[in-house]
Design a protein around this nucleic acid. Sequence first.
DNA 1: CCGATCCAATTAACATGTTAATTATCCATG
DNA 2: CATGGATAATTAACATGTTAATTGGATCGG
Lengths: 164, 164
Amino acid sequence: MTAPRASAKRTSAAPHAVLRPLRRSLPMTMLRAREAVMERFRGMLRDHGLTEQQWRVIRVLAEREPLEVTDLAARSFLLPPSLSRILKFLAERRLVTRRALNADQRRHAVRLTAAGRRLFRRIAPLSEGIYRDLERAFGETNLEQLYALLSELEQTLAPQKPKP
Amino acid sequence: MTAPRASAKRTSAAPHAVLRPLRRSLPMTMLRAREAVMERFRGMLRDHGLTEQQWRVIRVLAEREPLEVTDLAARSFLLPPSLSRILKFLAERRLVTRRALNADQRRHAVRLTAAGRRLFRRIAPLSEGIYRDLERAFGETNLEQLYALLSELEQTLAPQKPKP
DNA sequence: CCGATCCAATTAACATGTTAATTATCCATG
DNA sequence: CATGGATAATTAACATGTTAATTGGATCGG
């Protein structure tokens, strides 16, 4: 005799609680879609010797300069250890410079070099071109709806960082 | 290889051609939203000693077994080198087994062990629970719209893999 | 002034992403 | 059956993701 089951509202009646197929999981769907988008950009960036993340850093600095490492990490959505390595790479290629602040030697101001700015100006229109192609293919309305949903999703899940 | 991108006669003549802020780029928005979602799952997986990708492999095998490495890579959306390392890890922990096919020694059939299936059955309901919380917070309608848009985006961009 | 403590950034260690090279096997053809 | 070309899987090499430890500098209380 099995135990009388409690109110199962809308469990899909499967006797063994099979997880949804991976293909229909939200993180997987988001990953696949993002990869499809990034594939459009990666080749172009590669032609200029940059990875996606290195380009993010340059792009953020082109928006606003100088930036301290911590701020740069937040704006480029990179973890500090990743950014540390990327800055080392970009500094070796003379695309950025780092200098400790006079007021606080722990903090470092990061700036683009002239070469870094030139590289940004060369790549930016290519990036915008790819983006416009994408917008035309996918549709402006779809794109706006997608942005709205993604932002709302992030907002919905945001307050999950309780401070002790 | 980048697509040849036919005659681009419509390069925008904006005088400054400033790139959109990184925060409003599509790949960045998708990355941020996905990370917000994954954050919900990562801690639970970590409690069971698994990474997101290792869990994907187990989950795919729980859907269908046995699978050859190539098929497993496609279904789990992992590149073969990554999967190779993950299978080594999972085999060492006695969660999967690998065996060459009799008919073709190059191909390897991958299966879950009994312990692998037990681990899946332990984690699956936790994963579903998190997913239902997320669905409740974000809204079923939003979630369906998001799935639809992401799938359409992937479809739209799909035919970018010309076969030589 | 000094030691405890905090803080910014980096380094360490390990897992995955990514492309190229390698290894082992299969298979078609001479 | 030998051999060259395909194919499956792995390994190599380097970049990033992730968490923990470390380093060097600031800061505060005594």
